[in-house]
């Protein structure tokens, strides 16, 4: 502790803040004492401990969300130096300074860096991103999945609904109802599952509804941005193929 107080080195943060969901946003600057290995969350904790802006005026502490602190829950996603990413894995040593922090504006801002990602959870409900196994009796073990399939499906299952891919997508905005890349990839995941496959058509139907897969304009920002390295554009193209086939099957089958 003594060392850190002696050290006069500080890191400047420029934070985009907003007091209420419908309030105007503004920026506030903070000088946070440097500590080796610090990340954006630990800097925000420091601001919370000592809520003074760079001019030395006391201010309200900056609000943010975080949970796992190891890049698996997605709660701490925010725009750091122009790119959406997880604050807990954003090491200050690797960031250009001053560090600019803003909420992911694709989502409604609740306060400061706290955003409301409900639309993503609604999208998961819409595409039925689950496997229905509830019944009145034990259904027994389901069919097994081939190891070769499990390997790529596992990659898709790493999605933490963080919202980074929606933030990066030029077609997810207030002018469209596009659900974004993440739920489309989840349809691929659940349709690949031997039990999930039994409800495959329902999920494809959901992707063909308003705001579904047709909203993709192939900018491919999502696949470049996903912190989990999920092959989103492959999933989307795979679902393009599946929905196209499904469309013809529906036309020719009735």
């Amino acid at each position: 502790m003594a060392e850190t107080t002696v050290s006069s080195k500080t890191v400047k943060f420029i934070v985009t803040r907003q007091d209420k969901p419908d309030a105007k946003s503004y920026t506030e600057e903070f000088e946070v004492p440097y500590r080796p290995g610090m990340n954006v969350i630990s800097a925000l904790m420091e601001i919370q401990r000592n809520p003074k802006n760079a001019n030395g005026q006391s201010t309200s502490p900056v609000c943010w969300e975080s949970n796992c602190l190891e890049e698996v829950c997605g709660a701490c996603s925010m725009v750091i130096n122009g790119k959406p990413r997880q604050a807990c894995s954003a090491l200050v040593d690797k960031l250009e300074q001053p560090v600019r922090i803003a909420p992911m504006s694709t989502f409604p801002v609740v306060r400061d860096l706290v955003i409301d990602r409900s639309r993503m959870f609604n999208a998961l409900k819409k595409v039925k991103a689950w496997i229905p196994i509830d019944g009145t009796y034990d259904l027994g073990p389901g069919p097994r999945m081939a190891e070769s399939k499990r390997q790529w499906a596992y990659e898709l299952s790493k999605c933490m609904t963080c919202g980074v891919c929606l933030e990066a997508c030029p077609n997810v905005n207030e002018k469209t109802s596009f659900i974004g890349p993440a739920p489309i990839s989840q349809v691929r995941l659940f349709n690949a599952h031997p039990t999930g496959e039994m409800n495959k058509d329902e999920r494809l139907d959901a992707l063909m509804e308003e705001g579904g897969i047709e909203g993709c304009g192939n900018s491919q920002n999502c696949v470049r941005s996903c912190p989990k390295g999920i092959p989103l554009t492959t999933s989307i193209a795979e679902m393009n193929k599946a929905t196209t086939k499904h469309m013809f099957k529906k036309w020719l089958g009735v």
Binding site: N218, A237, M239
Partner: peptide, 8 residues
């Protein structure tokens, strides 16, 4: 891409 012809 949109018709699912080029996937990977």
């Amino acid at each position: 891409v949109s018709w699912g012809i080029t996937v990977g």
